[in-house]
């Protein structure tokens, strides 16, 4: 582990509120390469607070890459330059002394900037509420081993279930589409026997709400997969498309 500090110029998007105009503000910092990116922002904030200036508003919680709260665009890339990690897992050893670093919020029509680097992503919850579940009440359940599921199938379902709901796929997409996020949940449940009874309704309802909320459509550029911190595969989008087509053939209870 290196000990020498690195000096950076950090250009951070500051925007007091949703309706106000934002701009980049420069900060100079000398930071340990063992610090995380968010710890570097903490240090800037601690200095600002000491000078009685408002700290940079940004969100994080677990700082372990699992809660999906953090999410910054760093040098133009959602979650920064290293693939398959969330912003909170990025460490300063990936930057060089003298670098300039640009920090912006996730930008998408369906994600409003609330303050500085904080955006509102509740649209993703609304899509889940529309059908991202198996309708089972507490207690009305068979023994867990009553339905054998092959290790392979369960493992592919788990790959899809690993989505942390961060919204980087939306921010990465030029159409601000939430297809990767939606396809991950649709795939997980379509792959499992428990998910079969609602397979048709689920995909239709989730896609409908996604469209209503102003997320764009998917034009297969795959920028989402490249920026996804959990490596959710675009194969899930292909599966979603198949599910959706099949659902429209099969179902008669939805007016499109």
């Amino acid at each position: 582990m290196a000990e020498k500090k690195i000096n950076l110029l950090v250009k951070v998007w500051r925007q007091p509120s949703t309706t106000s105009v934002g701009s980049f503000v420069d900060y100079k910092i000398s930071v340990s390469p063992d610090s995380s990116f968010l710890e570097m922002l903490d240090e800037i904030n601690n200095d600002l607070e000491k000078k009685n200036l408002e700290p940079i508003a940004f969100e994080s919680d677990c700082r372990e890459g699992i809660c999906g709260t953090c999410g910054l665009v760093i040098n133009g890339q959602p979650h920064g330059p290293i693939p398959k990690i969330a912003t909170c897992q990025l460490h300063m050893r990936n930057f060089k002394d003298g670098d300039t670093v640009w920090v912006e919020p996730f930008r998408a029509k369906a994600f409003q900037v609330m303050k500085d680097l904080i955006v509102e992503r509740s649209g993703l919850d609304k899509i889940i509420a529309a059908g991202g579940y198996i309708s089972v009440n507490t207690g009305s359940i068979p023994d867990a081993n009553a339905i054998p599921i092959s290790k392979e199938r369960s493992s592919i379902a788990m790959d899809a279930a690993a989505c942390i709901g961060c919204g980087a796929c939306v921010a990465a997409c030029k159409n601000a589409s939430a297809m990767l996020f939606v396809s991950a949940k649709v795939s997980q449940l379509a792959l499992l026997p428990q998910g079969q009874p609602e397979r048709t309704r689920r995909v239709q309802n989730m896609v409908k709400v996604m469209d209503e909320l102003g997320f764009g459509s998917c034009s297969n550029t795959y920028a989402c997969e490249a920026e996804c911190p959990k490596g959710i595969s675009v194969k899930n989008i292909a599966r979603l498309n198949r599910e959706f087509i099949l659902a429209n053939v099969k179902s008669d209870n939805i007016e499109a």
Binding site: Y133, S140, I141, A144, N145, P148, S150, S154, Q194
Partner: peptide, 19 residues
């Protein structure tokens, strides 16, 4: 465990399909 499996929680499984 029964409840979570019913919800579609993808617990680790053995080759025989059991948890």
């Amino acid at each position: 465990i029964d409840q979570c499996v019913a919800q579609g929680v993808p617990f680790a499984r053995e080759y025989g399909g059991m948890l």
